[in-house]
């Protein structure tokens, strides 16, 4: 069997606003659009993914937060309604998705063998989090590939950003090992915003773009620093400053997704593809991809 590999890594922010703005049939509320910079970036990345041969999307989500270890989806089918607890006015999405349980179990075992606390999630009533749904919908609106969702263990809350980095790195390495042994071609997805301070009020029309801007300039400067380092292919350095960055901007990187993905991809030292940066209700969001194949890697923006 050929060795499995990671064919693309995606930083894929999940404000439900993006799905809302796209008006897919699965989502009940109707919008007049909004956040085009991000949506068009996502559309372009989705087109790239259509031309990549892959078997499964593995996604790490902040919105399945676990405090007792790292959990993996462990049933083949989930279909239900996802209502966003924070923004229920814009996200009420009917999902129907398939899970690659074999790969989920292999990653869980690999992580467990390396000393990480793990658990398979086998309750059929479990509701899939809106981070998974938003990122996967924007990357693959056809939902024609199976996924695996990995929960985010909240080491940053219990210990520190440094411990989060260490644990997420160990998890990334364990997942890579399982992927290689599986023989599968895998797209990794780290689902989160960058800076993560929200406005606590919402305009009457959420998609009113005359009201949208970053929460404050400090968040913007930090986000640009991170995006610049990604563009320069300095992912080891990005992970090194992650604890401070996360603290300064209360970034959603606190959940560990980006560290996990970069560790699984061996901390790329090649330029990332930048697909867009825009604020959503004050938070900073970048769509970024790491393509290990130098022949298909592009300068997008």
């Amino acid at each position: 069997m050929e060795k499995g590999r990671i064919v693309l890594g995606c930083l894929a922010p999940h404000p439900p606003h993006l799905v809302y703005a796209e008006n897919p049939e699965q989502n009940e509320p109707f919008s007049e659009g909004g956040w085009e910079t991000l949506r068009w970036g996502y559309n372009k990345l989705a087109r790239k993914l259509k031309n990549i041969d892959y078997d499964v999307m593995v996604i790490f989500t902040p919105h399945w937060a676990t405090y007792i270890g790292t959990h993996f989806l462990g049933l083949p089918k989930f279909n239900s309604l996802s209502v966003d607890p924070i923004f229920p006015n814009i996200f009420r999405y009917k999902y129907d998705l398939t899970v690659d349980v074999e790969l989920a179990e292999a990653m869980e075992k690999s992580a467990s063998d390396s000393g990480i606390i793990t658990k398979m999630m086998r309750n059929p009533d479990f509701r899939i989090d809106y981070g998974t749904i938003t990122s996967c919908h924007m990357l693959n609106p056809d939902w024609d590939k199976p996924i695996v969702t990995i929960s985010s263990n909240r080491n940053a809350h219990y210990y520190s950003g440094e411990v989060m980095n260490e644990q997420a790195t160990a998890l990334g390495e364990a997942c890579l090992k399982a992927i290689e042994e599986s023989g599968k071609k895998v797209v990794l997805v780290s689902s989160h915003s960058l800076s993560h301070r929200h406005f606590v009020t919402e305009s009457p029309l959420p998609e009113d773009m005359s009201r949208e801007h970053i929460y404050n300039h400090s968040q913007y400067v930090w986000d640009m620093k991170m995006v610049g380092m990604m563009r320069d292919g300095k992912m080891r350095e990005v992970v090194d400053i992650m604890p401070e960055y996360t603290e300064q901007t209360i970034a959603e990187t606190e959940a560990g997704g980006l560290t996990w993905m970069m560790a699984a991809m061996n901390f790329p030292q090649y330029p990332a593809e930048i697909y867009g940066y825009q604020s959503v209700i004050g938070t900073g969001n970048a769509i970024v991809a790491w393509d290990p194949n130098s022949e298909t890697r592009e300068i997008v923006l």
Partner: peptide
Amino acid sequence: SIVGHQIQAHPEPEWTHVDDDFHF
């Protein structure tokens, strides 16, 4: 909540809930 203070007002909310950690 993030957008202000949310208050439940559905007269008869109904679902089957599963906890993120204690699903088992």
